[in-house]
Structure formats: C-alpha cells, structure tokens
Design a protein around this nucleic acid. Structure first.
Lengths: 255, 255
DNA sequence: CGGCATGTTGAATCTAATCAATCCACGTGG
DNA sequence: CCACGTGGATTGATTAGATTCAACATGCCG
C-alpha cells in the first residue's frame, strides 16, 4: 500500500492497516481474539504526511486520536519568542493523544519529524470500543501512565543532569524504547532528528549539542549520522547517562 | 480528630475521613450519590506523618494508593551523588499514585514536606470500587492525565525558562492549583517549602534561588516567608512567568 | 545554652548561551 | 555539468547566567 502525502482512505473491517496498534497494545497486556478483531475494525483515516507537519496544535479541541503507524513524531510547546521545548519523541505504534478522551483542550503541539504515516481514530469510535471491552480501558490507561513516567524522567533529565549526560540519557531511552517494540537491534536504531531537535529536547542550544556530540563521538560512545544512531557500548553509555530503565516499565509489558 | 505521628486507624462506612477524596473527584466530574457513598466506605488506613517522611520509595512494589488528606508532599528522584529533582508538589485532596493500579514498580519517591495526614487505600479496595462504578475509572484516568500535563509543563519550565521565570511559573501553578480547590484566596496561599526544595524543583541551586527570590521581592512581585506565599499582582506574576493555565485543565473540572 | 536546619551574602569559577561565520551535502534548474 | 539555494552541521570569540565554595546570620527546639 502506497500513499502520496495527504492521500487518505478509511480503514474497514477487512483492512489490516491498524495492525501496529494491535501489536502495541498486545505488548502492554494480553488481548483476547475478540478485542484484537474489534481494534482492527476501528474506523480510521490513514494519511501519509511530510516533514514537520503539525498533527495537533495547542488550543485545538480534538475530535480524534492520532496513531503513529510509521515514522516519527515529536510533542512540544513554545515558550516566549520562538523558544521551543520538545517533551517527547514517538515511534511507530505509539498512540499520541489518548488524553483527548478525557481532556477537551490540547495543551501542546505534536508534529511529524521527517515524515510519518498516521491513523486518525475518531474519539467516538474509541469510546464505543472501550465501552464494549473494559479490559482495553486498563490497557490504554496503563499506556498513558507509562507516558507520564517518561515525562517525569525528562524533568529529571533537563533539571539535574549535565549536557553530556542528558544526551546520553536521551539516546539510551530512544534505543530502549525502540528495542522494546523490535525497531532496534545490534546497538543501532533510527533517530531521524536534527541537532536543533536534540537541543530542544534537552534544554540546550544546538551549538552546545553539536560540541557535546563531538565529545561523545571522541569518547567512542556513540555515533549519530544520517538519522541513524550507533551505540558502541551499551554498558558505557548507560553508565555515562546514569540510565535506569525502570521508568519505561517494559518488564511487565513483555509478559 | 487528632492523631499523633504514626498513629493509625481504619476508616469504616460510618467514618467520613475520606471526604477530601469525594470532594476532589467531585471537582473532576459529577458523582452519583451511590458513587460518593462507595468512596466514603473505602477501606483506608489514616496516618499523621512528620516532616520528610517517605511515603513511597523507588523500587517499591506498592500494594496501596496514597491520598493526601491534609498537608503537603513532593514527588522526586535522585540522580548521581545526592542530586535531587522534585517532579511535583501535592496538596490536600491529591491522589498521589493512582499509577500503582497499573504499574507494579514505583519509579520515584514521594515524601511529606513539612507534615501531612495521609490515607492509605489498598489497591484491591480501589479495584473493587472501579469494577463496580466504571464512571469512576474515567474520573481517575482523567486525573492522572492532568498530572501528566503538569509533568509536561515542568519539562518546559526547567528546559526553556530562565531562573526568574521558572520560579514565577512555579508560584503561579501552586497558587492556581490551590485556588482550584479553595485552599488559596486573596493572592495568598500556603507554600511550606524550603529554598532547597524550590531549587530541586526548578533545576537550580539554592544559592541562586535565594538571589532570584530576592530579586522578585525587590521587583514587588511576590513575598515568600514562613511557608506563606503572597502575590502582589497576579497579572504581573503571570506575565513574568509566561503562565498559561490551560495545562491545568481546571475549566472542565468546575463543571 | 547549644545544635541544627535554613536563609543570606560575597567572590571566584565555569558551563552553556549568544552571536556570527563558514562549511558541507544534497537537490534543483539552467 | 555546473551554479545556486537550502537545511543542517561545525567552529570561533565573547558573554551571561548559574554554580561552587566558604562564611556567617538567624531562628527554632530540646
């Protein structure tokens, strides 16, 4: 299936484009065959979007939920004159804004990074699904709690770690997150972000990110080129970062 | 009702000590009389705790949920050698760790600030309640989503605002949060935190907090003494902070 | 009274920000 | 094929903001 940018279609019962959602939720908790089928039958509009395309804007009153089928997205806020803080990065399978189910007003922006395929699921469809399968409520709730745990760790990252540690920690997280859904292996994974993005995610300037990255490369820790991250030694990187994966809560997921 | 530190009793159907929880949840969404009664009948152990008493520790496998009946608490993590980052402050009525319902392992610490009265609710009791009243699930879920929104704003605060703005913003948030549950009025509210706490919450050092506070006092913005915050001009403070209360999602709560 | 936690101040230091160029890879159109 | 434009990466020089270390003041409590 190929789609040009902006081209859309509506997924129906016989279409399997929502499979990534099934896989994601199955990685959180057991799904019955009926639940799986119900998820696949969700109404959804699928679109392929170009780089830096806003999916959600601050102040929106969203009537749908975004599901990343493929590609990358970033959650961010602006502050003052053009200063931007990225709050999270998202990879294929991530539900970007379950919060819309309960919070009427969006308090931040989400945009694609390089490009992405996104499924828009109407809130109504999601509500109907959850009403029919209460077990899925727990699954989605759990997912949103893990997101919150990641936000907390980001507060710690920008608040109390050095520039060097911040970047190390971010790389650990992005690798671990992708490894958990089998998007990473052999200490290599995609990371299609610019140095400006990294700066906005770590609370630094792009100049300083550039210098710090060079230092990390010099220390033989990592290499980041062409949107690919290569980690030379996982133990060295996690030690440098002070990385403890507990907050990602993947252990129980693997069950 | 007076309790010495550590003294406990078990709340029963006829006891109204869980009233703050009813009020808190009622401020989030409408509660039926049955739901209210069911909440009041929750099993809970109530304790009065002294200052800096840990309620939850990183690595715990908690079997209960903490509800702040009175006083203050802080959520925090350690990083490296004794460096600490506070991730949130909590006031009376706050449910501190609903996440325990879905995440088995605690990834951070929570401690009382000066002192507090806390109700410990067994997860089992909470699960039974939610199974019986699905509407309460939505209420608690919403509450945890608002918490997540606050975490996001904290990422922005420590990541992209100046020391001066960070403190202004924190004060705006603490006042607004308390005003929403009628714990603050007339531009005055409790804020029983030390300058070290403020530093750990904003990613600064206590020395710098001290100087910044003095500057704010000099500018006639606020006064913070004896655990009480006095705001001289709400518009001036919010402007200085770049404060936009959207992320607190109180509008819908007031419904 | 003495001890301890908290708040306050000064001076030196350093990290990261700022400003301003330049470079490089890549794609596009003449 | 080459000139050109563009977005991203890189580098240097300078400065601002925050940290560090050290000392001292204050207030509270046993």
């Amino acid at each position: 299936m190929r789609l040009q940018q902006g081209e859309a279609f509506v997924a129906g019962p016989s279409d399997h484009s929502l499979e990534p959602l099934v896989r994601k939720l199955a990685s959180i908790s057991m799904l019955s065959p009926e639940e799986q089928q119900a998820i696949r039958s969700l109404t959804a509009k699928v679109r392929r979007l170009g780089p830096r395309h806003d999916l959600v804007r601050e102040g929106d009153r969203p009537s749908r939920c975004c599901l990343l089928l493929e590609g990358w997205a970033a959650r961010y806020k602006f502050v003052g004159e053009g200063k931007r803080q990225i709050i999270s990065f998202h990879v294929a399978g991530d539900l970007l804004d379950v919060q819309n189910l309960h919070l009427g007003l969006s308090d931040h922006n989400i945009s694609t990074l390089p490009q992405a395929t996104v499924a828009f699921i109407p809130l109504e469809a999601l509500r109907t699904l959850l009403a029919k399968f209460p077990g899925l409520t727990a699954t989605l709730w759990r997912d949103s709690l893990v997101d919150a745990a990641i936000f907390r760790e980001w507060v710690v990252n920008v608040g109390r770690r050095s520039a060097y540690q911040r970047l190390c920690h971010l790389f650990c997280e992005m690798y671990a997150k992708q490894a958990a859904v089998e998007l990473a292996q052999d200490l290599r994974c995609p990371l299609p972000v610019t140095q400006v993005d990294l700066a906005d995610a770590t609370g630094l300037t792009s100049v300083h990110v550039n210098r710090t990255l060079r230092a990390m490369r010099g220390d033989g820790l990592i290499n980041l080129t062409g949107g690919k991250l290569t980690i030379n030694s996982w133990p060295d990187l996690t030690t440098a970062a002070g990385f403890d994966p507990t907050y990602l809560h993947v252990e129980a997921r693997a069950a």
